[in-house]
Amino acid sequence: MRIAVLSGKGGTGKTLVSVNLATIANSSTYIDCDVEEPNGHLFFKPKEIEKKNVSVKIPVIDDDKCIKCRKCIDFCKFNALAFVNNKVKVFEDICHSCGGCQLICPTKAITEKDKIVGEVQIGKFKDIDVYTGLLDTGKASGSPIIKKLLEENINNDKLTFIDCPPGSACIVMESIKDADYCVLVAEPSIFGAHNLKMVYELVTLFEKPFGVVLNKVVEGENPSEVFCIENNIKIIGKIPFDKKLGTINSNALIVVDEDEQYSQIFSTLLETILKEVEHETIINS
């Protein structure tokens, strides 16, 4: 079972929620899909790390075979190819590795080469499998790394927590694509509610069952909570705005291992999520 944890902006507590759920679950898997700046490993400090490169396919043009018909250039939706000085020029950072240019070339003048864009690291912390994706600095898209992370994990029947990148763009879609349930983490501010709306629209579009965790909860009005009530969205947990929690977390310690109150909060949250997923499975079968 795969539980994805996402939010419309960074810093709402995706990593806090997914790291602690994975810890409280015992014998689980944690996948850090925030490949631009993964930070779950700071808490787990995984051992026995196995590293695998991730590469994408980039077209290579054989100028002798090329008949300058420009079919490949007209085909490329991303404009990764240009024709200048009587030659096809490839813009590697723009290329989305779809392979279309190679298929469309009438003289088979296009082959592909591998270009490394990052790596996945698979390690262990106690009985938790820790997967971390790392996009190389300067590379344009994390999607290939996320694909590889989720592929590596495909035969895993452990309870899996996916720590998504912030926002609601392609890399987030890639991360939640095969999730059984989505946990949306939201902050108590107008900006927080706006960002919650973005991911709410995304999970609705993907027809994923989901619930909201309100983080940094303080007394008084919570615009994210108001948004949930107005849209009939289930709130599955609340985490207080608490200096003690902040201190433990900023020392890279896992709060459920340090503090009984939080161990309780996350146990209850996990139970709620598992019940929700079970319920979804029943009504959808």
Binding site: I73, C76, K77, N79, A80, A82, F83, F91, I94
Partner: peptide, 16 residues
């Protein structure tokens, strides 16, 4: 109206 790489395609038009 390109999704991406508009500058490359625009430059292509100027070159062509």
């Amino acid at each position: 109206s390109s999704q991406g790489g508009a500058g490359i395609k625009a430059a292509q038009i100027v070159v062509d």
